[in-house]
Simulated assay, not measured.
Amino acid sequence: MFTVAGMIDRYHDKRIFLYPDHIYSKPWHRRSKSIFIESILLGMPTTEFWCEEDNFGAVSVLDGTQRVKCLLDFVNDKFRLEDLKLLPELEGRYYSELPFRHASTLSNRAELYFTTISYDTHPSLKFEFFKRINSDSYRFPIQAARNFAFREHFRFIRNLQDSCSEYLKPLSERSESLSKNDYLSSASFDELYLLLSALTLTFHGSMPDNEETSEDLLDKAAMLIHFEEIDTRVLERKIRSRLRSLSRSGENSISLDSQPRFSKPTAPRLDAQDSIRLSQNQIANLYIYSLKDEVNSISDFYDVLNSSPRISPRSASSYYRRLFR
C-alpha cells in the first residue's frame, strides 16, 4: 500500500514502471481523469493496482496504468479539473491551486493498494494470472498473456521476426505509442510466428501431435521455447529457410493482413511495398505445404492459397491433418 506521494516518489526513483511491451492501455480523456481525482479527494477507495515485481523490488504495472499516469499528470499540473459533480468549488483548478486540505488528502491520506506477483512465480501461473486480470478487456489477445508469462519465447519470437523480415513482415512497423489496433496487430504478428514455430516443431517430431485446440498448440510451443526444451537456433534456421523458400516461390515477400484470426480471408493482393498481403490462415497453410516441399513455384503458391480453409481452425487436429496427410 502506498500514498500518492509515496507512489510518485517510487516512480521517480525508477521503482515503478509503466507500459511493458505486452500491455496496451487506452489513454484517458480529461473528464475521466477529473472524475478519478474527484473520487480520491472524496475519500472513495480506488481499485487495486496489479503489478509484477522484479528481483530488485521494482514493479511493472499490469493493470492500472492510466490511474498511475493520471495521478502523475495531475500532480505535475498537466490538466485542470473539469465537470466535477460533488466538488464544484474545485472546478478548473490545477493541483497547485488546490486548498491545502484537498492537496493533503490527495498526496498523503489516500491509500493505493498494489497487488504484486513475484518475478519467480511459475510462468504457467503468470499466464493464467494475466489472462484473468484482463478477462473483461474487449478483444484481449491471448498472445499478450503468452508474451508476459513466457519471456524467453517472447524474445525468441521478436528476434525471429527481425531475422525473417525480408520474407514475412507486418503491415506496419512497431512504434513506441501504439493505438489499440496497432497493439492487436502486433499481438497477431507475434502469434503468427509462434504458430509457424509450433507447426515446425510438430512436423519435425519435436512436439507431440496430441493437443486438442489451436490455443493449446500455441501454449505448448510457447512453453517449449521458454523452457529451452528445444534448440531454438535450429528452429530459427528452419523457419527462416521455409519463409525464404515461400517468398521465392511467390516472387514477393509476404505481409500479414490485420484482420481477426477467425474471419474469412480476403483475396491475395499486393500492398504499397509490393508485398503479398495474406491472412494468418493463408500464411499458415502455405507454410504447412512448404514444410512438405510442395510449394516450389508460383503456380504451386497460388494453388495452395486457393485451397486454404476459409477460416482459421479452432481445433489443432486440422493442422495435424494437413501436416501429415
Rank of each mutant, 00 (worst) to 15 (best):
T115N: 15
D120N: 04
P170G: 01
D216K: 00
E228H: 09
E228P: 04
P99N: 05
R240T: 07
S39G: 11
P141G: 02
N210V: 00
W50D: 11
S124L: 12
P88Q: 04
R80P: 07
R15P: 10
L195Q: 07
R80E: 04
M44G: 12
A187D: 05
I239Q: 02
K78C: 06
V295D: 07
L291V: 00
K26M: 14
I23R: 15
Y24E: 06
R132I: 10
A222S: 02
K26L: 14
K69D: 08
S214N: 03
Q259E: 14
A284D: 07
Y138R: 14
W50M: 13
C70Q: 05
S188L: 06
N159G: 00
G64L: 06
K131T: 03
E229D: 09
C164Q: 00
I35H: 10
V295S: 06
E228K: 13
D21H: 11
L87G: 00
L41C: 09
S249Q: 15
Y95K: 03
I23K: 14
D120T: 03
P27E: 11
R139N: 13
E212V: 08
I117D: 00
T213R: 07
V59F: 09
P260E: 01
F114S: 02
K85C: 04
E228C: 07
S245F: 08
R325A: 14
A144R: 02
L81A: 04
S39H: 09
L256Y: 04
Q273K: 15
L201E: 00
F156I: 05
E52F: 02
G92S: 05
T213Y: 07
E52N: 06
R174L: 15
R244S: 14
E191V: 08
M44D: 10
L286A: 05
Y95R: 04
V75A: 13
L178Q: 12
A5M: 11
V59I: 12
R237C: 12
F154S: 11
L196R: 01
E173S: 12
D77W: 00
I311E: 07
I311A: 08
L184A: 01
S137L: 15
L42K: 07
L256H: 02
F2T: 10
L87S: 03
R155T: 09
S258K: 13
S206Q: 07
E128V: 08
E229M: 07
L42T: 04
S96V: 05
G64V: 05
A5I: 12
Y94P: 06
S315A: 11
Q259T: 12
L84Y: 00
E176P: 01
S315N: 10
